[in-house]
Nucleic acid binder design. Structure first.
Length: 422
RNA sequence: CGGAGAAUAGUGUAACGGUAGCACGAGUCGUUUGGGACGAUUUAGUCUGGGUUCGAAUCCCAGUUCUCCGACCA
């Protein structure tokens, strides 16, 4: 991508009244735009990051046996009445169609997937199976806050699992917990993210949340120094056991980036989702559900990866891997950087025999000062900054700097690809 | 949903009830060119609707929106 063509604008100074760093940085660097309270557009840069996150999640879900599908946002009132959530769920968006017919905008999809799967599940032979989607959810939060950490409309991955037995549900639940650990690790927030025991809401006694430590978060979690357990403040009073009285815990602010639940029969029953077992009797299907908010995850990544100059994207989710910056208006600089841009953007062989290409943002702008280009590069937070200038070309080299690190290294121009491959 | 604050140019801000100004951005010209450089010049604004007043960005009322605190958060 040529930076001269990229649809974005950066803002030099922080002007925002919000306390959330991720919100401030993502807006200033041109990744997102606020339409209204709790509703955001993802601009081209932000959309690239979102897609990276989406693919990391998709890959893990597929590896856990999940099959992707897409369910509607618009949902019939009747299904929500069946589960008694039409009136009970305060955050439910209700819309009216023609003839005053009422609908819900889906905040979650149990009310769709349970009646859907009912049409396909008859026998114990049909179980288990796992379905997921990555889709927009609507929740009329009474109060939105912290930029994209808490919004009314957001992209969510929701996986639903269907089982014959409690043991099978338990096993799969743990499997997905492991997938979640992988996802958050891959997204670069692994060391800040904890599996946290939390309230099960109306489903079960407990659920597991994945909480990322950040001051921008609105949850409080306790990390016990004595027994190592991690739990949400909401269950602090009920969790003290004979094993550990939890009187020596670290208390941290955090944001919930994922949550997994054992739903059991909660949604199978209202929709009559059952199967005929081997012995000929009908039994309720047991369900689990597993969610990750993508925008919030993106916010959490920024909250844990920035410095005073801007964002520091982990390589796995960065909009581009390489920020190729040309300085000095000269034919030689222009020509060299154009060649590098072309070479990096072409498919090349990497060590394990696969082919790949580097995603490059080429700062080809002629009318910007070096200082401005550097400052903007730091704000955007692309992992590798490669500078091509008269100075570097005098040594037949380009300059490579990793965002977030001080070291600057001169690399021969014709060796850049090999260098970056490492 | 309760409480508090705010709304002026694209952005951030200033103006006692009496000429709407500054900075950044954007445009043009020139000088610069390794950390958001400099000069000249141009551009563009009082949230909406009422009211008080000779006169309202400023005071009052209503609405809308945003931010913050709290409650809520499958």
């Amino acid at each position: 991508m040529l930076q001269s063509k990229l649809f974005y604008k950066t803002i030099k100074n922080s002007h925002l009244s919000t306390e959330s760093f991720s919100h401030d940085l993502l807006i200033r660097a041109g990744y997102i735009d606020q339409l209204m309270a709790g509703v955001y557009s993802f601009l081209p840069l932000g959309f690239l990051v979102l897609k990276k996150i989406e693919n990391i999640i998709r890959k893990e879900m597929q590896e856990a046996g999940g099959q992707e599908l897409l369910m509607p946002v618009l949902q019939p009132k009747e299904n929500w009445q069946k589960t008694e959530r039409w009136d009970a769920l305060g955050i439910l968006f209700k819309v009216k169609g023609s003839g005053d017919k009422e609908y819900a905008l889906g905040p979650t999809h149990e009310e769709v997937i349970a009646p859907l799967t009912r049409k396909f599940v008859f026998s114990y032979k049909d179980l288990p199976f796992y379905l997921f989607q990555i889709q927009t959810k609507f929740r009329d939060e009474l109060r939105v806050k912290s930029g994209i950490l808490r919004t009314k409309e957001f992209l969510m991955k929701d996986l639903y699992s269907f089982h014959k037995t409690k043991e099978d549900l338990d096993d799969y639940y743990e499997k997905i917990a492991k997938s979640y650990v992988n996802i958050f690790k891959e997204c670069g927030i692994g060391k800040h993210t904890y599996r946290t025991l939390a309230s099960g809401g109306s489903f079960s006694k407990y659920s597991d949340e994945f909480q990322t430590i950040t001051n921008a978060g609105e949850d409080i979690i306790y990390i016990c120094k004595k027994c190592g357990s991690v739990f949400n403040r909401e269950i602090k009073n009920e969790i003290q056991s004979s094993d550990c009285n939890h009187n020596n815990c670290d208390q941290k602010k955090s944001v919930e980036v994922g949550n997994i639940f054992k739903l059991g029969k909660k949604y199978s029953m209202p929709f009559d989702l059952k199967y005929t077992d081997r012995d000929g009797t009908d039994k309720a299907v047991l369900m689990g559900c597993y969610g990750i908010g993508l925008g919030r995850l993106m916010g959490a990544i920024v909250e844990t990866n920035y410095d005073e100059k801007g964002i520091i994207w982990p390589k796995s989710v960065a909009p581009f891997l390489v920020h190729l910056v040309e300085l000095d208006k000269s034919k030689k600089v222009k020509k060299t950087s154009e060649k590098l841009y072309k070479d990096l953007s072409s498919f090349i062989k990497v060590s394990n025999g696969q082919v790949k290409k580097f995603e490059v943002l080429h700062d080809d702008r002629q009318n910007k000062s070096a200082g401005e280009k550097f400052a903007e590069a730091d704000l955007l937070g692309i992992p590798y900054r490669v500078v091509v200038s008269e100075k570097t070309l005098a040594k037949n080299s380009v300059e490579v700097k990793e965002r977030g690190k001080d070291a600057i290294r001169l690399v021969k121009a014709n060796n850049l690809i090999n260098y970056l491959k490492i």
